[in-house]
Design a protein around this nucleic acid. Structure first.
Length: 303
DNA sequence: GAAAATACCTGTTTGC
DNA sequence: TGCAAACAGGTATTTT
């Protein structure tokens, strides 16, 4: 499922194609793709046609495309997107046949690359696109990866920075954990504490740091939190280098290709298979209406 | 006010 | 064989 590395692969693929491009047409095929857009599909189409995109920016799992404004001025609006569980953003030739589950198509004219189409396809319709105003960041640092502007969409403002963001506050993260009585895995998935981590990378980072997923966050020592943060960064970096995690056709880059990180997983989806450290079987438990995978020997629960 | 539970969604897999 | 239940898990909202 798209977590930070997968969304970053999409952002990086999109950026050179959309930056500087003029929106020549927009087609909304399913308004469920606009659940976070305040207006209708017609409004979405009309508001975007004729405008230009400046960049492709990402924080955590949120992606946004700032729209042009006066020269030298920071953009004041953006198309903000979230892939949800199964969303895809694909680059296609103009007039390309409709993708399965295609919800929105944005036709572009790029001064260098010519005409192309950005297709938003989404099987489970948890993903969405919207037009959203941009607001200043609290710390005056860049709003996300892909643009130096210290702004972000309103819908992203409550989301914490992600662990790969240079402005991520390590000390603030340690303080937040010390105040949380919830299980550490639940806290890792809380995007207001740290963004970009989903079920797969939470399981992987906890396995790497040898921490049981149900350990209380506030019970972790500073040393353990530092180890965990280092593992989070290591697993996200490695997944990014391998093009993300793909189990099926649900996650692909802008050209429809799968990533390779699924081959590097140590815990997620490995129920019953031997732990890569100690050889004992990985177990799966139900947790927050989803699955947690871990090694009960390497990741003991201490109270 | 924090933490936990639930709603939303559809294609595929599993189990009886 | 066929159907129903389980499963996948993002975020926002509701309940505890």
């Amino acid at each position: 499922m798209p977590e930070l590395p997968e969304v970053e692969v999409v952002r990086a693929g999109l950026a050179p194609a959309v930056a500087g491009a003029l929106i020549s047409g927009v087609s909304v095929f399913d308004e469920r793709a606009l659940t976070r857009h305040p207006g209708t599909g017609l409004d979405f189409e009309a508001a975007l046609t004729g405008r230009s995109i400046r960049a492709a920016v990402r924080r955590g799992k949120f992606l946004w495309l700032p729209l042009e404004s006066a020269a030298g001025e920071p953009a004041s609006e953006a198309i903000v997107g979230h892939l949800g569980m199964s969303g895809q953003l694909l680059l296609r030739e103009p007039g390309a046949p409709a993708e399965r589950h295609e919800r929105v198509r944005i036709d572009l004219q790029h001064p260098v690359h010519g005409d192309l189409a950005v297709v938003f396809a989404d099987q489970r319709t948890f993903g969405s696109l919207a037009i959203d105003p941009l607001v200043q960041t609290m710390d005056a640092a860049a709003g996300g990866f892909g643009s130096p502007d210290p702004v972000m969409p309103v819908q992203v403002a409550h989301i914490a920075r992600d662990p790969l963001d240079p402005a991520f506050d390590d000390a603030g993260f340690r303080r937040a954990l010390s105040r949380k009585d919830s299980a550490i895995k639940r806290v890792l998935l809380d995007q207001t504490v740290v963004s970009g981590i989903g079920n797969i990378y939470a399981d992987e980072a906890l396995w790497g740091a040898r921490i049981h997923p149900e350990t209380s966050a506030s019970a972790l020592s500073t040393r353990a939190v530092n180890r965990l943060l280092a593992e989070v960064r290591a697993v996200l970096d490695k997944a990014l280098a391998e093009g993300g995690t793909s189990f099926d056709a649900q996650y692909v880059n802008v050209n429809g290709q799968a990533g390779y990180f699924a081959h590097s997983l140590h815990a997620y989806g490995r129920t019953g298979q031997p732990c890569d450290r100690c050889g004992r079987p990985i177990v799966r438990v139900s947790f927050m209406n989803r699955s947690s995978h871990f090694c009960p020997y390497c990741q003991k629960l201490r109270r």
